[in-house]
């Protein structure tokens, strides 16, 4: 176990929230609690036998209104390893395409008496809207350009394993900050834990007044990398861009692609992270992405399952009257 930087109360007071819509609204010790809870699942997942009947008899619905492979799979595995009945609802096969409103879909899911609903949606705020209407815990698996809290938690867990402490840690997040919910959740999570966060993007991909979120703003990637302990690269979200934001991927790579030469500006032991899916040869060169000992990209995926197990476990404790949470 990692030495505790934060203490938290026993039982239900450690996490007094009914759902996980965002990192915003979480206290540092609540984030820390979730990270601690995830450690046991990291251990379990490294065993051959990786099943626990913690959520046995519970139904978890993964309602994904936006395409996803990795996050959906991660949530599905997390639920199944904890013994829950996991159902996936994908947009392509749902009545959302027939004009049903989001609220009606939410009420339908609610009537099916799910014990937790995991939601991804292309519109910012959609998950909060559903969370306000259903009785069970709601987990945000990404809403528009707003938040993706489990991604930030798994990134924090990955960093904690490698760096142990966050205070003063220099984290550079580079890429399409404007369209990135991962960036927003990571900024909230990492600054809350005491890291010094830098964000780097061309002006067109940098949201206004982002410095009000306690980050340093860079447009020059080399300057942003200098002395960094963690380098987090983001994908260009072409599908969310209205109009032209950059002249070409080639030009973007020239200015913001993470190469070995560029990585040398960071600390010698700087971690390389990417939430995936990667565009190799655009925002990150293959040799950097595969750099043994430095690249955390597969570790992030591993931590993702553990974090989602922790979130599903913790958020259903009230409903299943777990000891100390009833």
């Amino acid at each position: 176990m990692i030495s505790p930087e934060y203490t938290y109360p026993e039982g239900a007071a450690a996490f007094p929230h009914n759902g996980l819509v965002g990192i915003a609204g979480l206290a540092p010790h609540e984030i820390w609690f979730l990270l601690d809870e995830a450690e046991q699942w990291v251990e379990l997942n490294r065993n051959a036998q990786k099943h626990r009947e913690v959520l046995s008899g519970l139904t978890i619905i993964n309602a994904f209104f936006e395409n996803s492979t990795r996050t959906l799979l991660s949530f599905e595995i997390a639920g199944k390893r904890l013994g829950a009945d996991v159902v996936n609802m994908a947009v392509a096969t749902s009545s959302v395409k027939k004009g049903e409103t989001l609220i009606d879909t939410a009420m339908t899911l609610n009537a099916m008496r799910a014990d937790a609903i995991v939601i991804r949606h292309a519109s910012s705020g959609a998950v909060q809207l559903i969370a306000d209407k259903v009785d069970c815990p709601v987990l945000n698996a990404g809403d528009g350009q707003h938040e993706h809290p489990t991604q930030a938690l798994l990134d924090a867990l990955t960093i904690r394993h490698a760096k142990r402490a966050f205070n003063g840690l220099r984290v550079t997040i580079c890429g399409d900050i404007l369209h990135s919910r991962v960036a927003r959740s990571n900024i909230l999570c990492l600054t809350s834990l005491g890291a010094d966060v830098r964000v780097c993007a061309p002006p067109a991909l940098m949201p206004a007044d982002i410095e009000r979120m306690n980050v340093q703003v860079f447009h020059d990637f080399d300057a942003a990398l200098t002395g960094a302990d963690v380098v987090m690269m983001l994908r260009l979200q072409m599908e969310r861009m209205e109009g032209q934001f950059i002249p070409s991927p080639r030009e973007y790579r020239h200015l913001y692609g993470l190469s070995m030469e560029r990585l040398a500006k960071a600390q010698p032991d700087a971690l390389v992270m990417h939430p995936g899916p990667m565009n190799r040869g655009i925002e990150i060169e293959s040799d950097v992405a595969d750099l043994a000992g430095r690249s955390q990209i597969t570790t992030q995926v591993e931590m993702g399952v553990a974090i989602r197990m922790a979130c599903l476990d913790v958020l259903t404790r009230r409903g299943r009257k777990a000891e100390g949470w009833a």
């Binding site: 915003a24 910012s124 705020g125 809403d143 528009g144 350009q145 707003h146 938040e147 919910r181 927003r184 949201p207 206004a208 007044d209 982002i210 009000r212 979120m213 209205e242």
Partner: peptide, 12 residues
């Protein structure tokens, strides 16, 4: 455009 739109991730 501003802090609120940025925090909420709204097109601004």
């Amino acid at each position: 455009s501003g802090e609120m739109a940025t925090r909420l991730g709204l097109p601004s």
